[in-house]
Nucleic acid binder design. Sequence first.
DNA 1: CTTCTAATTTATAACGATTATAACATAATA
DNA 2: TATTATGTTATAATCGTTATAAATTAGAAG
Lengths: 136, 136
Amino acid sequence: MTHMKKYPIRLTPQRLAILEYLEGNKAHPSASDIYKAVSKKHPMMSFATVYNTLETLRGKKHVRELSIDPEKKRFDPNKKPHHHLICLECRAIADVHRNFALDLTDSERYGYEITGTHVDFYGVCPKCKRGRSSKI
Amino acid sequence: MTHMKKYPIRLTPQRLAILEYLEGNKAHPSASDIYKAVSKKHPMMSFATVYNTLETLRGKKHVRELSIDPEKKRFDPNKKPHHHLICLECRAIADVHRNFALDLTDSERYGYEITGTHVDFYGVCPKCKRGRSSKI
DNA sequence: CTTCTAATTTATAACGATTATAACATAATA
DNA sequence: TATTATGTTATAATCGTTATAAATTAGAAG
């Protein structure tokens, strides 16, 4: 995990397992996805540890917490600035690495101080499209 | 509420009260905000009715369900296409009425069929900015 | 290497948002 | 008016998440 030396956290076996699972993971897993996957190798792992660790990682900017899925928080270890492409049927999330220059005029800004921008593209992923046509 | 004739729903006193509350509401209220406000006039109103009604309104496209707030769903009766400006401190949400032409190349699209786009601007609202400076 | 302290993990309870269920009430329709 | 579908209510259940307290462990100090 990049930046790990720059913003270090105390490394425990549990945290290492979670970091290992997240490293390069492009699925944008939820806490429960992470728990399920990691507890296979660490059966004693508690759910609370997953939440605690995610909170710690979020604080050190090692993961981004996404509010894209209305059902649950999802986590993104990709630290490059990027946007998302979301399947409205299965909630799959893909990354979009492009920089959109999105600026607001003063009147549009409405007194807000803007610190970041994020674009969501909504649609249907290839897997769900296939599923559809087969049902005709 | 616009479109009400085009996509009608059966109008009950409860639904009317909820629609009245939502009409022109720019606060992007949660189900609980709506319940609190509406049950002042309709003390017998049940929480379930708020959820049921919101689900019905969503189905008829009378409200948009937002996943902007990680804690809870919020609802937007504004049917003009628009984007959002979100205060990271108090979760206030303001509307941005601008059309951004955001297109992805085929390779960026990754097989997804894109049906919509939404831009979130993150920052600090004027109220929270004021709160900050007074604490120096 | 041992001792100490603070941080971490665990199990579990509590919480808030949301959904499900079933009985009751109301509206629309025949 | 009788019938049927739809909406409302109260309430239980569920799910994701946070809080708590006791037990464990990592890391620092000696």
